[in-house]
């Protein structure tokens, strides 16, 4: 395991999502996963998707239950809200403090990031309160011999594709922010912090794209399939 991480440091943001802590010693990936109650195949699938630009999650991820995926999505959300966003917010704050920016420019950036965080939270809570519970219920219902007729009725008027239509791309605003910093703001003296902020933003953007891929290309099509199956089953019964 230590080799995998050492050679692919981009995996670092992934570890907390699986509650894997470093100090791996000479344990293999399988041993580490086993010790932390993580499904090794699932971890590898996500890690590959994360490392390989050309890799499209789907084939491999189709083998895992929707609840495994929902859990992963939730822990990714907590990684964003508890670790990634506060980290970059703190750096932006310090960068602004040490800059020669005018008051207006500082408030432009801070307001922007505060509002972004708010929108981000709304987006996540919408998913966690409505979408993910729905996915779990759908999986439960389709495992039942006789699905609840009320649920079936609801299914006839609602589909996961509605969600897809409203699925905002959270990375776009971060791109605007990086562009603002590079193109339009006066130069910063604290180069180290300046580089860190831009690096963090870029890593977070890529992470959000990957995450949206997991949701849009794996979760949603599978949920849509399951919806169809369940409706079919109900119409035959």
């Amino acid at each position: 395991m230590y080799r995998v991480v050492l050679e692919n440091l981009q995996l670092l943001p992934l570890l907390p999502r699986f509650k894997l802590k470093s100090g791996f010693g000479d344990k293999s990936v399988d041993e580490v996963c086993l010790a932390h109650g993580v499904n090794t195949d699932f971890f590898l699938e996500i890690a590959n998707a994360y490392l390989d630009e050309l890799y499209v999650p789907g084939e491999g991820l189709a083998l895992f239950s929707l609840s495994t995926m929902v859990n992963y999505i939730k822990s990714t959300h907590s990684y964003y809200t508890d670790i990634a966003l506060p980290m970059v917010a703190d750096k932006i704050h310090r960068l602004m403090e040490r800059s020669n920016l005018s008051e207006k420019e500082v408030s432009l950036v801070t307001n922007f990031f505060n509002d972004y965080k708010k929108d981000f939270m709304t987006h996540i809570s919408q998913e966690e309160e409505h979408i993910l519970p729905y996915v779990l219920e759908l999986e439960r219902q389709s495992s039942l011999e006789k699905p609840d007729p009320q649920f079936i009725q609801k299914l006839q008027s609602y589909s996961i594709s509605e969600f897809e239509k409203e699925h905002d791309r959270l990375e776009i605003s971060l791109e605007h922010l990086s562009e603002l910093i590079i193109k339009y703001l006066p130069p910063f003296d604290d180069l180290q912090l300046y580089h860190q902020v831009l690096n963090d933003l870029s890593i977070l953007m890529k992470d959000l794209v990957d995450h949206a891929d997991v949701e849009d290309k794996v979760l949603i099509p599978r949920v849509a399939d399951l919806e169809r199956e369940l409706l079919n089953k109900a119409s035959l019964a």
Binding site: F112, S173, H176, Y184
Partner: peptide, 15 residues
């Protein structure tokens, strides 16, 4: 645009 806030629109307008 997928942008709701005034600050978000302002940065969009600048870039």
């Amino acid at each position: 645009l997928g942008i709701k806030s005034v600050s978000g629109l302002t940065v969009y307008a600048i870039v």
